[in-house]
Computed example of a mutant assay.
Amino acid sequence: MFRNLLCACLAFAAVLAVSAPTRAASAYDIDVGVDATLDRFFANVRGARELANKSVGILVFPSVVKAGFGFGGEYGEGALRISGQQRSVDYYNTVSASVGFQLGIQERSVIIMFMTHSALEQFRRTAGWKIGADASVAVITVGIGGSIDTNKITSPVVGFILDPKGLMYNLTLEGTKISRINPR
């Protein structure tokens, strides 16, 4: 029993060490990652740019790292752009934790589009916005070379999850907490 508890504690400490950043990225570094992620998204998914142009705000996390061994943790930093602006207006981090069967490290990009002004304003005025509690995000799954039918999207907040190859995962964002940060 003691050995199992010790293993669980060591695994949890390893997850925290891998998923927590040693320092926050600079605003410039975050913006470079946001630009690259959006470029990859627009190049791989037909209709993505059109949907982005219809949105009132886009929150992009270029690199969200999830690590786990029984206990899991996830962390990433990103930026919010409003109404297709090329510059970021605010910076955020995303954090989540989980318990259950999991092993390894995974990296992904997350794009959240706010389709209504009220959804964007609720997000911006909520400290520590939690997906599932403060708002529901409809995760759209699209394969490589796929397309988005922008006329069928009716949710006020939609999300996309991309792996480094551009494929979409059929994952959830439930339980993810997003908070404003001040990068250096």
Rank of each mutant, 00 (worst) to 15 (best):
C7Y: 02
C7R: 11
L10M: 09
A13P: 02
V15Q: 00
V18S: 06
A20W: 15
P21C: 12
P21E: 10
A24C: 13
D29C: 00
V32H: 05
D35S: 12
D35T: 14
D39P: 02
A43S: 09
V45A: 02
V45M: 05
V45P: 06
V45E: 00
R46K: 14
L51G: 05
L51S: 09
V56T: 14
G57K: 12
G57Q: 13
I58V: 15
I58L: 09
L59Y: 05
G68A: 01
F69N: 14
E74S: 14
G76D: 12
A79S: 13
A79W: 03
G84H: 03
Q85Y: 03
Q85S: 15
R87N: 04
D90H: 02
Y91Q: 15
G100L: 06
G100P: 06
E107I: 08
R108D: 00
R108C: 08
S109Y: 05
V110E: 13
I111Q: 00
I112C: 14
I112R: 14
I112K: 11
M113P: 01
M115I: 02
H117S: 05
E121F: 09
E121D: 08
F123T: 04
F123C: 01
R124M: 11
A127I: 01
W129T: 01
W129D: 00
D134Y: 02
D134E: 09
A135E: 12
A138Q: 13
V142D: 10
V142A: 06
G145H: 11
G146E: 15
S147K: 11
K152A: 05
V157M: 14
V157Y: 11
G159F: 08
F160H: 15
D163Q: 11
K165V: 08
G166K: 02
T172Y: 11
L173Y: 08
L173C: 11
E174I: 14
E174M: 15
E174T: 15
T176W: 10
I181G: 10
